[in-house]
Design a binder for these strands. Structure first.
Lengths: 183, 183
DNA sequence: CAGTGAAGCGGAGGAAGCCTCCGCTTGATC
DNA sequence: GATCAAGCGGAGGCTTCCTCCGCTTCACTG
């Protein structure tokens, strides 16, 4: 790739990050182009669809997911506390950008989504936490990772759309934890 | 109201119902007007906002909610079976139109939404079911109606966006039921 | 360093949707 | 039948999307 093209690409990702943070993932792409100082044609050549741009800006936080799992699993207390800590991390990660929770979770089931690899990272992270719970014999029988991811995605989406605080979200996560843990 | 205005209003609701069913609640309003054979001005006079039109088309199913509660409560079996039957009704009602689950649930917390009265009907219906469970001593302590509505709304939204079948949704409802019922 | 070709750029502009404004039509009333 | 407010329609301004194509700039070569 030519040097100027590389520069533009990086600048677009940087600006898109800011714009999406300010105005949500549905923000006008023309504004991204304008603020990046390029024509719309340039933006669309680098990122043919809105989703391609979403994917690019998510690349950074995807790398952090493993760290968040570790952090949650280091929480003091029993399985329940660790699980709830992870749930809170999960929801917080998904609600970093307005509209992200719904989009990421929707692409969970669909093989050909451009966000597929990203949401798979989340699903894998959640699976690893559930596996840990299972090893300790704390998990009910027949709990499916995809179902839990969708439940959390649903909570995150509601939190996103109603601008709920962590305190508002907590009791819902409690219900899910009660629902998948034994006793 | 003049007779022709009345006629147009009814026709618009009828057509909007069809268009929203086909293309989701975000379908272009100009198309509603076109298919109803009126100008856009007429549509916007009758329904100044998209939400006003949503509200109008929801009026019919809102009237059915009480019936769905009764139907679910008549399910054979214990509290758990009745609760799950109701949850399935709830999700099915919310997913009648694409995009409805998210919008209705989002307006739950917000006092000044035009959909307020509609979503309140759902919340009240759910509260009555939870009260019944509570009377039978089946409900855990500290379960909040709003939280349950949001959890269900989240599941419905995920079902909507990923086109999930009732069988796909069922295990998620199981988790919620486990999470709010004793034992 | 100049020449060359392709990679890349930008922005004009068509398409779609939103919503308003205003001159014309029509229903209700006398 | 005359009147006139209530109601209508659609032209059109605005925003956003996305494409197309003539021009520019980079990288490479002799």
């Amino acid at each position: 790739m030519r040097a100027d093209a590389q520069r533009n690409r990086e600048r677009l990702i940087e600006v898109a990050h800011a714009v999406f943070k300010e105005r949500g993932l549905d923000a006008p792409l023309d504004e991204v182009a304008r603020r990046a100082g390029v024509g719309p044609g340039t933006l669309y050549r680098h990122f043919p669809t809105r989703e391609a741009l979403h994917e690019a800006i998510m690349a950074t936080w995807i790398e952090e997911v493993a760290g968040h799992v570790e952090k949650a699993m280091a929480t003091e207390g029993g399985c329940r506390d660790k699980l709830l800590a992870w749930f809170e991390e999960y929801v917080s990660l998904l609600t970093r950008h307005q509209g992200a929770a719904a989009k990421i979770t929707a692409s969970l089931g669909c093989q050909d989504s451009p966000l597929r690899t990203k949401c798979q990272t989340y699903a894998d992270a959640n699976a690893s936490v559930l596996a840990e719970m299972s090893d300790h014999g704390a998990l009910r029988e027949g709990v499916d990772n995809l179902d839990v991811c969708r439940l959390l995605g649903g909570v995150a989406t509601m939190a996103d759309q109603s601008s709920l605080s962590a305190e508002d979200v907590r009791p819902m996560l409690d219900v899910i934890a009660n629902g998948i843990l034994k006793n």
